[in-house]
Deep mutational scan, measured.
Amino acid sequence: DVEPGKFYKGVVTRIEKYGAFINLNEQVRGLLRPRDMISLRAENLNVGDEIIVQAIDVRPEKREIDFKYIP
């Protein structure tokens, strides 16, 4: 289970104008929005990159997770 405030290692699987999709594993995926990329620009991300993200909002009923990148 993903808990708000905890840090996780994930892999960038898709990049859109509104953010990057980060997979923690095959069943868990969330969104890293540009406003939550402190000191990281979306254009510096590539599909396949491994990054550490913090879960900031977890909505299990919608199967949605928002992440924040903190260097």
Rank of each mutant, 00 (worst) to 15 (best):
D1R: 14
D1Y: 14
D1A: 13
D1W: 15
D1L: 14
V2Y: 08
V2N: 04
V2G: 02
V2D: 03
V2T: 03
V2E: 02
E3Q: 14
E3T: 13
P4F: 08
P4M: 12
P4V: 15
G5C: 13
G5H: 05
G5S: 04
G5I: 03
G5P: 03
G5Y: 07
G5L: 07
G5A: 03
G5T: 03
K6M: 09
K6T: 06
K6R: 12
K6I: 07
K6P: 02
K6Q: 09
K6H: 10
F7N: 05
F7E: 02
F7A: 03
F7I: 08
Y8N: 00
Y8P: 00
Y8C: 03
Y8T: 01
Y8Q: 00
K9Y: 09
K9Q: 07
K9L: 11
K9D: 01
K9S: 06
G10N: 01
G10W: 15
G10I: 05
G10C: 08
G10F: 06
G10K: 01
G10P: 00
V11Q: 04
V11W: 12
V11A: 01
V11L: 08
V12C: 04
V12Y: 00
V12F: 01
V12R: 00
V12Q: 00
T13I: 08
T13R: 04
T13E: 04
T13P: 00
R14F: 05
R14L: 07
R14I: 05
R14A: 11
R14N: 04
I15V: 10
I15D: 00
I15T: 02
I15L: 09
I15C: 05
I15K: 05
I15E: 00
E16W: 14
E16L: 11
E16R: 08
E16F: 13
K17D: 09
K17Q: 10
K17I: 12
K17P: 13
K17E: 11
Y18I: 10
Y18M: 07
Y18R: 07
Y18L: 07
Y18D: 06
G19C: 10
G19K: 07
G19N: 03
G19R: 08
A20E: 01
A20D: 01
A20K: 01
A20T: 08
A20W: 12
A20F: 12
A20Q: 01
F21G: 01
F21A: 01
F21V: 12
F21I: 13
I22N: 00
N23H: 12
L24F: 05
L24C: 07
L24I: 14
N25R: 06
N25E: 05
N25D: 08
N25I: 07
N25C: 11
E26S: 15
E26T: 13
E26V: 12
Q27T: 14
Q27Y: 14
Q27R: 14
Q27S: 13
V28C: 09
V28H: 07
V28R: 03
V28E: 04
V28P: 02
R29S: 12
R29N: 07
R29M: 13
R29Y: 11
G30C: 10
G30Q: 03
G30K: 02
G30V: 09
L31Q: 03
L31H: 02
L31D: 01
L31M: 08
L31I: 09
L31A: 02
L31E: 02
L31F: 08
L32S: 02
L32D: 02
L32N: 02
L32H: 03
L32R: 02
L32K: 02
R33V: 08
R33Q: 05
R33W: 06
R33M: 06
R33K: 08
R33L: 09
R33E: 02
P34K: 15
P34N: 15
P34W: 15
P34F: 15
P34C: 15
P34D: 10
P34S: 14
R35F: 06
R35Q: 11
R35G: 10
R35N: 08
R35K: 13
D36K: 05
D36P: 02
D36Q: 07
D36T: 04
D36H: 12
M37I: 07
M37T: 05
M37S: 05
M37K: 03
M37C: 09
I38V: 12
I38A: 12
I38P: 09
I38M: 10
I38D: 11
I38F: 08
I38W: 06
I38K: 11
I38E: 11
S39R: 13
S39A: 13
S39K: 13
S39Q: 13
L40C: 11
L40A: 06
L40M: 11
R41N: 10
R41P: 08
R41D: 09
R41L: 13
R41W: 11
A42H: 13
A42T: 14
A42R: 12
E43D: 13
E43L: 13
E43N: 12
N44G: 13
N44W: 14
N44H: 14
N44S: 14
N44D: 15
N44I: 09
L45I: 12
L45R: 02
L45T: 01
L45Q: 00
L45A: 01
L45N: 00
L45K: 05
N46S: 14
N46V: 12
N46F: 11
V47W: 03
V47H: 02
V47N: 01
V47L: 10
V47Q: 02
V47A: 03
V47F: 02
G48M: 02
G48Q: 01
G48E: 01
G48L: 02
G48Y: 02
G48N: 03
G48P: 00
G48C: 07
G48V: 01
D49A: 06
E50N: 09
E50M: 14
E50P: 08
E50W: 15
E50S: 13
I51H: 00
I51G: 00
I51R: 00
I51M: 04
I51W: 01
I51L: 09
I52A: 02
I52N: 02
I52T: 10
I52H: 05
I52S: 03
I52W: 15
V53Y: 01
V53T: 00
Q54H: 04
Q54S: 03
Q54I: 11
A55N: 01
A55I: 15
A55H: 02
A55W: 06
I56S: 05
I56P: 01
I56R: 05
I56N: 02
D57Y: 11
D57R: 15
D57T: 13
D57C: 13
D57V: 13
D57F: 12
D57N: 15
V58D: 02
V58C: 09
V58Y: 09
V58N: 04
R59D: 07
R59G: 04
R59H: 05
P60M: 10
P60Q: 08
P60E: 07
P60L: 09
E61I: 08
E61T: 09
E61N: 11
E61C: 09
E61F: 06
E61W: 08
K62T: 11
K62W: 08
K62A: 10
K62L: 13
R63C: 13
R63W: 09
R63K: 14
R63I: 06
R63Y: 10
E64G: 07
E64N: 07
E64S: 07
I65C: 10
I65F: 07
I65V: 09
I65E: 03
I65P: 04
I65W: 09
D66H: 11
D66R: 14
D66W: 14
D66A: 09
D66V: 13
D66K: 12
F67T: 03
F67C: 06
K68V: 09
K68T: 06
K68L: 10
K68P: 03
K68H: 05
Y69P: 03
Y69G: 03
Y69K: 03
Y69I: 05
I70L: 10
I70Q: 08
I70N: 09
I70G: 05
P71N: 09
P71Q: 10
P71T: 11
P71E: 11
